[in-house]
Design a protein around this nucleic acid. Structure first.
Lengths: 110, 110
DNA sequence: AAACTATATCGTAATATTGCAATATTAAAA
DNA sequence: TTTTAATATTGCAATATTACGATATAGTTT
């Protein structure tokens, strides 16, 4: 159905999945990596950098922002974007923790 | 178009995004957390645990397996699933690294 | 072998995502 | 204030995802 039974899951599970989902597209990973290398940039920079049209980039930025992965500050008629380290730390820490527990579990894995 | 311009991105970007995408659904996060708590289990256990039909769970397991997040071993007529720590470590480490670099960058963020 | 158990696959309906042209919005510059 | 610049929004076509009933497949038990 393309619809998710969100009511069946915890707030944390939904939060983590939404962040992961936002990072689940190569263009958005490329945007994050680009942002990381240039520190801050405006939408137009990304449009020049990636082979995607301006509305497409704008949409990807919106999804990254909704997930809390980046934040944008209005500066005149452009918007300065940068990564929000807290969200990346949250998701990274969550997966690392799972990896760590799974690693010890794995001794008696099938 | 619902189609991704994969040819425009690096292998690593695509690999990371595919893992993140697989983790981008609350049911699959719930499956990973469940697997983490019970160490190993079979598909039927998850069907009993989650309010999802057996074909739906089977499909989610397939996606987690394709992304390398879990692995399944045939045991009689059932399949024993468990988490692959390496993939979780890869994705967790990748995000933590980004968080770390972004954290120092952020001193001069907009 | 027949019945049972566990899981995968098929088919399909409902919905979501991706990408972009066209257009709107908002602020700076001339 | 008209033009220019930067970004967002709208609308739409193509495709992907989600969920599940029905069914297939494969091993186990009797």
């Amino acid at each position: 159905m393309g619809i998710t039974k969100t009511e069946s899951f915890t707030e944390d599970q939904i939060r983590v999945s939404l962040i992961a989902k936002a990072l689940g597209h190569p263009a958005r990973i490329a945007i994050v990596e680009y942002l990381l290398s240039v520190n801050t940039c405006i939408c137009g920079d990304i449009v020049n950098y990636l082979p995607l049209a301006q509305p497409t980039v704008s949409q990807h930025l919106k999804e990254l922002k909704n997930a809390g992965i980046i934040k944008g500050t209005i500066e005149g008629n452009s918007i300065c974007y940068c990564i929000d380290p807290a969200t990346m730390e949250l998701i990274g820490g969550y997966f690392i923790k799972i990896a760590s527990i799974a690693h010890t579990n794995n001794l008696k894995c099938c």
